[in-house]
Structures are given as structure tokens and as C-alpha cells.
Design a protein around this nucleic acid. Structure first.
Length: 773
DNA sequence: TCACTCACTTAGTAACCTAACG
DNA sequence: CGTTAGGTTACTAAGTGAGTGA
């Protein structure tokens, strides 16, 4: 405590003497003076300037990874089908991937269709041939050439705007407005979103309204002059869309199917392309339709009109040998190119941020698969360097050069907290940060060594953590916030992602900040999986697996917003638990009646659960009774229906009513019983029962159920804000999941959805139960 | 060096689908 | 068998990082 004031002394040596201390500080500042200039203005030489092994206790740097244990490595052997792509360059840059060879040769070389599990037998024979290509068994090229031949059918444009019926109008100041269709379309975009959060956001409203007015003006204006957003009433439009939605929902099933089949047929040609002669699935062949930009967080441009994309803005990339897809009638492509160094099939520029959009292949394609594979191999390689890296940055936390200290501290955060690199962002984007762009206000301190990080990261997702950090990190962060700095200033003013990444390349080619996230995520997963005992039911193993997955998701701060239904369903489970406890309590009281001696022995056991207050019990009884009533009513109806179905004569409504009333009497009795029981404080059970032994058994069962249900509730709560899928898709090496599946005998279908099984086919077919990250 | 462009991965959520439920 | 809760897929925004050129 008392020395907390000392905390802003950066170096380890502290002094009690104020004056001296002051001097000390100044001295330090002068130590740093050379790179006092923040990064942006700095001259180049400042960078390499100091040789930093002057640091006191620095142990020798051992960065070159020790003679990588040369795992005898199954497949350098070129394999079966070498296709056009494979140019001589086999795995060149990846020489270091030695310890992580291209996926070991799978058992069944032939490329026979592996397991009939998911391709339904009826699929065409020819397809088998094509899909049998197992790129992960083929030689890897360096990836700079993506294809040699490429053919596809281009992109699908959204349908043209369909004007609203005459009677559906924007009302302005209570008067219907005749809008030119261009403007009507834009107004309709807003109208359709009327009930969303976006439509309530003032920035969204403002941006929308500005663009709407612009469009309106350009189209010649309306019969009414429109100047104030507040006077616009979009309800007609909203209701119209809503009605249409319901109408659509009510289309009979068969009809729905027909429509869908028709649509699928129309889209089929766009879905596939041929890459080096092999059929591949295209990911997003649809040109993004016009609408209002839904920027996340407080994006300054949210609500702006995202304009309709015309063929004239779309560039096509295709093999020179292939037939160029026809642009829509009367239109031309912006350009047609034949660039085999990129993987996109089409591109255009979006009008709001000027960002480039691409049409890529689907996640299950060979191109995506290969780069995914490479990503994980790179991350695996990091394990050979991580010790040296950690050792270095720990030492450099005390480096006398500010740049190095900042860099080391940033590396600590990236490594330990899995922060993103954090590149610079513009005025016209949401204000979010990552490691390098952390600012003064994002970090606070709780002595002796707890750092509170609170900032908005990617997608404006909040990162909040109070973490105990290394003492030196604590000191450094304080130092980086020191005096001249104020709110709004960057903590790491000498550091940016490019310089950090440049440093990282020294350890390992291709190493960048983001690799740490992949590495630590997969490493965490592996460590978690190791702890799972290999026993129990599949379901239990699933729970354990998901818990491991969740640890990773938490590490990566993958969140989701709680669903609207969440609270409700939690309430239901809570009631369920209460009801179990209530019933258990009743049984206990019965037991006490039967065998009073037990109560004497263990009075605590017979105590009422504190949450079972009188009110709660009343409510539970109510709940039970209404439920029983509903059951009875439904049962009568159902029985009647069955009768009718069997050709018997059904009951009249009156008869049904009568029948129901009859049967409800039993429920009324039940209700009476509960009431009486309660009156006697549950000392006189209405329906008296079994032997004490039986009762005890039942009580035990209920206790178990209470525990299980409570666990289930906890699981639900824990999961409510955590998104598991993101880490599963992007960070956890799929071979870990495959390993788990095989080792623990959990069907892969339980761990990967259909699309994920396709995306991770390479992993499923190459990893075994002993695979390690 | 710096600002900007380009390509590609990562991200949450809306829309859709499906299996459990009552 | 219709509803609905929950899982899956589609969508597209928002990152990272390499490259480029002045």
C-alpha cells in the first residue's frame, strides 16, 4: 500500500529518498530520451540504435530454436495425384514446418470415398471422382499461385426493386407522400427496420435521413417537402412488410418447397466453379443487396445508404482459357482479369467505407482448406519458439529503451491475454482498439499488481478483465501512462503492429501477433482436453468438451448477446429446480412423520430449503395445478380427436366440456390436498405413502435431479454470453477435436456440424487419437 | 517512412431449419 | 402435428498483415 506511490517508478531500484527519487526519474527519462519521440514522427535510426544486452541480469538470448527435433516425418513423399497446380516449388518457405509435416498420409490412399456417412448414396458417380481430391495428401506449393485454370459463372445480382402498392405510403406530417421509386426504396429500407434497435439510434436516423433526402432530391422530389425526420411516419411500410412476411410464412409447405427448388435451380450455376479442373463450391456468389449500412457499435456511418451494385462496378477474375460469364443484359463488367495469384472470383467496391468486397470460394474448398492448414501449422511451429520468446520479452520488460519495453509489454498482453494486434483506426470508424492502440483510459490499476483492462475491441465487443499481472508489467503500464499523457493518448506510443510483427519475424518466419491467438487457443484446448477423464456417457464427454471449448472462447473474448428468450427459459429451469426441491421437502416431511426418530438424529436434513418461502410454495402449487388442468383439458380433446379419426362419433362441445369438468375434479382434489398439506405445515401429507426406505430413495433421486438441473442451469448461464463457435471455426486446431472424437469415442457428428465436417475434412481424415498440437 | 490499397481471416447476428415438446 | 427452442448456415462487417509507391 504505502509503496503504491512508488509504483510509477519504472525501474526496479527504488529509493526512499524523495529527492533522490526525483533525480532518478529524470535520469530515467533521459535514458529514454533518445526515443522520446512517438512512433509516428520518429526517424528510422532510433529503432535499431541500442544494443540491449547491456541489461543487468540478462541471460543469454537463445532465440534460434534448438535443433528442431526432427520428427521422422511421414510424408515428404509427393503423393498420388499431382495436379496442374503443383509447380516444382514444393514446400519451400515452409522448410521449418518439418516437425509438422503435411498431414500424415492417410490410411486409404486410393482416395476412395471415405465413409458413406454423409454423402447420400444417390449422388452422381462422377462427382465422387472429383471430390476425391485430397489436397492434404498432395504436395504443397508455396501458395503464391492459387490456380492454373479457373472457370465460373460470375455473380448473382439481387432482384430489381419492387415498388410498393399504391396505398402503402410514407406519411409526412400526417400526409401521404408520393415518392419517386428510388426514394421509396430507401424509405422502405428504413420502414422495414422500424422495430429494430438500429432505427432508434439517432446516428442511424440521421445518416439514413441525409441519404434519403439526397436520393429524393436527385429523383425530383415529392409532392410534399420533406425536411424533418421526426415528421416521417414509416408505419404503413412497416406494417406492409410485416403482413408480407406473415403471408409468406403461411404459404403451404408443398408450395414453399416448390419455390425453394425453383430458386435453387436458378442459383445452382453460380454455386460451383472449376479450379484446375476440379469442382469447388463458391462461397458468396451473391452481390450484396442495397440497404442501410448496419455498422456495429457506434459507427459514425451507420444508417447510410448502401447503394445497389451495378455490373459496371464488378471486376471478374477468371482463367484466361475460360468463357467469361455474361453480364446482365445491356451491361458490362468493370473489368475481366486473369490473375492466378489471388483466389477471388469477383470483386467490387462498397460505397460507404470504400472497402473492397470479394467473392471467394466456400470454406470447404481446397484453397481455403490449405490456408487453414497452413495457419494451424504455423501456430504449431510457434511452440518451438515460445519459450525463447517469453524469456526474451520477460527480460525486455526491464529494457532501458522505451521502445523495447513497450514492445515487451505488448507481447506479454498479446501472449497472456490473447489481445489482438490493434491497428490504427480512422475518424470515420467505430472507436475500437487492440493491444497497440490501447489508450490511457483503457487501463487502470489496483495495487499491488492488478490491472483493469476495459475497452471496446473488434466489433465493439467489450473487453473487461481485472488481471493479476507480472509486477514488471504492472510497473510498465503505469510508466506508459505517466505524466504528460492524458486521456486519449496511446499507451504504446512507440509501437505499432508492423514494428511488432517485424520483431516477431526474427523468431520465426511468418510469425505475427495474430498467430499467438491461434497458438494459445489451440494450446489451451489441448491442455483442457487432457484433463478430461476418458469415461462416462457420450453426453458427459460432450459437456466436458464444451467446457474446454468454453475456456478457449473466454480466452479469446468471444461473446454473443443473450437471446430474448434467455431470461424466460432460465426462469423455467429455476422453477423446475424449485419444484423439485418442493417435492423433496414434502417427501422429507412425510418421512419425518413416519419415523420421527430420524428427525431427531438429523434435524438439518428436514429443514425447509430457505428459498422455499410461503409465497414460492403458493406459486409452485399454482403452477402445478394449472399445468395439471391443461393436461386434462388437452387429454380430453385428444381422446376425442382420436375417436373421430377412428371413425367413431365425436363428442359435442357440451359433452367435451362436461367430460373435462368431470376429470378436472381430480385436479381440484389435488389442489385441495396441497392446500391442506400446507396448512398443516406439511406435517399431514394428504396422500400418505410408502415405506421410509422408499421415501428415502425418492428423496435421493430428487436430490440428484436438483443437482443436475442446477448444473444444467449453470451451464446455460455460463454459455449465455459466450460464443463457442467462433473459436471452434477459427482458432482450435480441428485435429484436436478429431483426436478427441477418436480417443473418447464421441461421434464426430456431435462435435462438428455438417458444414464444419466439410470444412475440416482434411483434419478428420488425417488426425488420429494420438494427434497432438 | 508513411499512407494507402489489396487480399484474406475473423466476428457477431439475422435468417433459416429442425428436432424436441406439449 | 403445430410450436418453439435451439442449433446451423448465410451474411457481411471488422479485423490483420503484406505490399506498394511516392
Amino acid at each position: 500500500m504505502s509503496d503504491s506511490s512508488n509504483d510509477d517508478i519504472p525501474l526496479s531500484q527504488r529509493t526512499q529518498d524523495k529527492r533522490k527519487r526525483k533525480l532518478k526519474v529524470e535520469k530515467e527519462e533521459s535514458d529514454f530520451s533518445e526515443d522520446e519521440v512517438p512512433l509516428k514522427k520518429r526517424g528510422k535510426k532510433a529503432k535499431e540504435a541500442v544494443i540491449r544486452n547491456t541489461v543487468k541480469s540478462a541471460p543469454a538470448i537463445k532465440k534460434q530454436k534448438s535443433e528442431t527435433k526432427v520428427v521422422p516425418h511421414p510424408s515428404t513423399a509427393p503423393s498420388i495425384k499431382t495436379n496442374g497446380t503443383t509447380n516444382g516449388k514444393a514446400m519451400k518457405a515452409e522448410s521449418d514446418l518439418n516437425s509438422a509435416p503435411a498431414v500424415s498420409l492417410a490410411k486409404k490412399k486410393g482416395g476412395k470415398k471415405s465413409s458413406a456417412t454423409d454423402d447420400e448414396g444417390k449422388t452422381e458417380q462422377e462427382q465422387e471422382e472429383e471430390e476425391a481430391y485430397r489436397w492434404w495428401e498432395a504436395e504443397q506449393n508455396d501458395g503464391s499461385i492459387k490456380w492454373t485454370t479457373l472457370s465460373h459463372k460470375g455473380v448473382l445480382f439481387p432482384p430489381p426493386y419492387e415498388p410498393l402498392p399504391k396505398h402503402v405510403k410514407l406519411q409526412y406530417d400526417g400526409k401521404p407522400v408520393d415518392l419517386p421509386i428510388e426514394a421509396e426504396e430507401v424509405a422502405g429500407f428504413f420502414g422495414a427496420m422500424l422495430e429494430t434497435e438500429h432505427a432508434k439510434n439517432p446516428v442511424f436516423q440521421k445518416n439514413f435521413f441525409e441519404d434519403f433526402k439526397t436520393v429524393l432530391k436527385k429523383a425530383g422530389g415529392a409532392n410534399v417537402e420533406i425536411t424533418k425526420f421526426e415528421k416521417c411516419d414509416f408505419n404503413d411500410m412497416f406494417n406492409y412488410f410485416e403482413a408480407k412476411r406473415i403471408e409468406k410464412k403461411n404459404i403451404p409447405n408443398a408450395e414453399k418447397k416448390r419455390i425453394k427448388a425453383e430458386k435453387d435451380k436458378l442459383e445452382e450455376m453460380y454455386k460451383i466453379c472449376y479450379l484446375d479442373g476440379r469442382k469447388e463450391v463458391v462461397g458468396n456468389f451473391r452481390i450484396e443487396p442495397p440497404g442501410l449500412f448496419r455498422g456495429r457499435g457506434s459507427h459514425p456511418k451507420t444508417g447510410k445508404l448502401k447503394a445497389r451494385v451495378m455490373p459496371e462496378q464488378v471486376t471478374i477474375n477468371i482463367g484466361a482459357e475460360a468463357e467469361v460469364p455474361q453480364p446482365p443484359d445491356g451491361h458490362k463488367w468493370a473489368e475481366v482479369k486473369h490473375d492466378s495469384t489471388v483466389s477471388w472470383l469477383a470483386t467490387w467496391k462498397e460505397n460507404i467505407n470504400g472497402a473492397t468486397k470479394y467473392v471467394f470460394l466456400a470454406a470447404n474448398s481446397s484453397l481455403k482448406g490449405m490456408s487453414d492448414f497452413k495457419k494451424f501449422e504455423k501456430a504449431r511451429q510457434l511452440k518451438n519458439h515460445i519459450d525463447a520468446i517469453r524469456e526474451d520479452y520477460r527480460r525486455e520488460l526491464k529494457d532501458e529503451k522505451m521502445v523495447n519495453r513497450q514492445r515487451a509489454t505488448a507481447m506479454y498482453l498479446i501472449d497472456v491475454l490473447a489481445l489482438r494486434a490493434g491497428g490504427e483506426k480512422g475518424e470515420d470508424e467505430a472507436d475500437t482498439v487492440g493491444c497497440c492502440s490501447l489508450r490511457y483510459e483503457h487501463v487502470t490499476f489496483k495495487p499491488p499488481n492488478i490491472v483493469v483492462l476495459d475497452f471496446l475491441g473488434k466489433d465493439s465487443i467489450r473487453f473487461y478483465q481485472e488481471v493479476k499481472v507480472d509486477n514488471q508489467v504492472y510497473k510498465n503500464l503505469k510508466l506508459f501512462k505517466r505524466d504528460p499523457k492524458r486521456e486519449g493518448d496511446e499507451l504504446f506510443d512507440r509501437l505499432d503492429p508492423p514494428s511488432l510483427n517485424k520483431h516477431l519475424q526474427n523468431y520465426m518466419p511468418g510469425l505475427t501477433a495474430k498467430v499467438f491467438r491461434t497458438y494459445n487457443a489451440s494450446k489451451t484446448m489441448q491442455d483442457q482436453l487432457k484433463k478430461i477423464p476418458n469415461r462416462g456417457t457420450v453426453n458427459e464427454k460432450m459437456v466436458a468438451f464444451n467446457a474446454a471449448n468454453r475456456a478457449v472462447a473466454i480466452l479469446c473474448n468471444h461473446q454473443r448477446t443473450v437471446s430474448k428468450s434467455h431470461e424466460q427459459s432460465v426462469g423455467k429451469i429455476e422453477d423446475k429446480i424449485l419444484e423439485i426441491k418442493f417435492q423433496r421437502f414434502r417427501l422429507k416431511m412425510q418421512l419425518a412423520q413416519l419415523d420421527p426418530s430420524m428427525k431427531k438424529k438429523d434435524p438439518a436434513f428436514f429443514e425447509r430449503d430457505p428459498e422455499l418461502t410461503d409465497e414460492v410454495i403458493d406459486r409452485l402449487i399454482d403452477l402445478i395445478i394449472t399445468r395439471e388442468r391443461e393436461k386434462v383439458t388437452k387429454k380430453v380433446l385428444k381422446e376425442n380427436e382420436k375417436k373421430v379419426a377412428d371413425g367413431e362419433k365425436g363428442l359435442s362441445e357440451k359433452e367435451i366440456e362436461k367430460e373435462t369438468r368431470e376429470k378436472l375434479k381430480a385436479v381440484d382434489e389435488l389442489a385441495e390436498g396441497y392446500k391442506k398439506e400446507k396448512k398443516s405445515d406439511f406435517k399431514k401429507p394428504v396422500v400418505s405413502v410408502a415405506s421410509p426406505e422408499k421415501l428415502q430413495q425418492q428423496i435421493e433421486k430428487l436430490s440428484e435431479r436438483a443437482i443436475n438441473t442446477t448444473l444444467q442451469l449453470k451451464d446455460k448461464e455460463d454459455n449465455s454470453t459466450v460464443a463457442l463457435t467462433t473459436s471452434k471455426i477459427n482458432y482450435i486446431d480441428p485435429r484436436l477435436t478429431v483426436m478427441f472424437s477418436k480417443k473418447f469415442n464421441v461421434p464426430i457428428e456431435k462435435l462438428f456440424s455438417k458444414t464444419l465436417r466439410e470444412k475440416f475434412k482434411w483434419a478428420i481424415e488425417s488426425a488420429d487419437e494420438n494427434w497432438t498440437f
